[in-house]
């Protein structure tokens, strides 16, 4: 355990050192990411204003809070994608990672976790600018803040597991992008990324409750900006934990069979 803690801290430190080398690239990437919620925010704020100032329980200020918090949750949700798995297999990097006495997923989780600290530092001025422009209404309790801090890391781990499982498909087929795009589309609708889940039809909300996606976007955002009860907040954290454990189990099973298929020819 001590060795893993040491590894995670060292790998996170390496990620921070590396990503600071690419601060300009990271900033441009972040600006690109910010465009998406800004469009949603403008559209939904306009609709809310046309409907008398609120929609689905969200006022313009509430929507502004939702999408500004969204930008932070989105940064937390950046994980090693199936494209990364494709690339690491095609360029032979997986072979070198498999030589380590440690599952490659530990490298992915720790590296991207370290990267978050760089992104959060870069995010602060952008969030400040968005707050000045869109004037969010945000009055969380300390419990909400605490749950949010835990939930954004929970969201990161849930999403890591979803995309690790997809990434492992590359051990069978070197192209997984089509499946990735399909899951990505489902995530857009069922996670609260496109629109707060409370604005979706009730049956979609029920469906989303039993899938992992909303625990990666809607739950952490709503934990901070919504009016969830303590039970709802605890349930959300519990659902994240369940999905993380399910993800670990599936990754283990898929890995067990997939690694036997790994051919590594020429790499």
């Amino acid at each position: 355990m001590k060795r893993y803690i040491d590894f995670y801290l060292t790998s996170m430190k390496i990620a921070i050192l590396e990503q600071f080398q690419y601060r300009a690239q990271n900033y441009f990437y972040m600006v690109g990411v910010i465009v998406e919620p800004t469009i949603y925010l403008v559209v939904w704020s306009t609709i809310a204003n046309q409907q008398g100032g609120s929609i689905g329980g969200y006022s313009s200020g509430g929507l502004a809070a939702y999408y500004i918090v969204w930008t932070l949750v989105r940064q937390m949700n950046i994980v090693f994608t199936p494209y990364g798995w494709e690339d690491r297999i095609q360029h032979g990097r997986l072979s070198m990672e498999l030589m380590r006495p440690m599952h490659p997923i530990h490298s992915d989780v720790s590296y991207f976790a370290g990267w978050k600290f760089v992104m959060i530092i870069l995010w602060i001025p952008i969030a400040t600018a968005l707050a000045l422009i869109f004037k969010p209404i945000l009055n969380p309790t300390w419990v909400q803040v605490l749950v949010f801090v835990v939930a954004i890391w929970g969201a990161y781990l849930v999403r890591t597991m979803i995309y690790a499982v997809l990434g492992l498909i590359t051990l069978w087929t070197t192209r997984v992008s089509a499946i990735f795009e399909l899951v990505f589309a489902l995530e857009m609708i069922l996670s609260g990324r496109f629109v707060p889940m409370t604005l979706m039809p009730v049956w979609v909300q029920h469906l989303a409750y039993y899938l992992p996606f909303q625990w990666t976007f809607f739950f952490p955002i709503n934990a901070l900006v919504g009016r969830s009860s303590s039970i709802e907040l605890l349930t959300g954290l519990g659902m994240q934990l369940i999905w993380i454990l399910i993800g670990i189990l599936i990754v283990k099973i898929v890995w067990h069979f997939g690694i036997r298929r790994f051919s590594s020819v020429g790499n």
Binding site: R3, D6, F7, L9, T10, S11, I14, L17, E18, Q21, Y22, G92, R93, S95, M96, R100, P101, M102, N267
Partner: peptide
């Protein structure tokens, strides 16, 4: 493998050595 690298491209090798220390405990 002569054509494969285990090191971080952007950092001094000393940092990669440190990561290797952590990997192997």
């Amino acid at each position: 493998m002569g054509n494969r690298s285990q090191m971080s491209w952007d950092l001094p090798a000393l940092d990669s050595f440190e990561l290797q220390r952590a990997i192997y405990g």
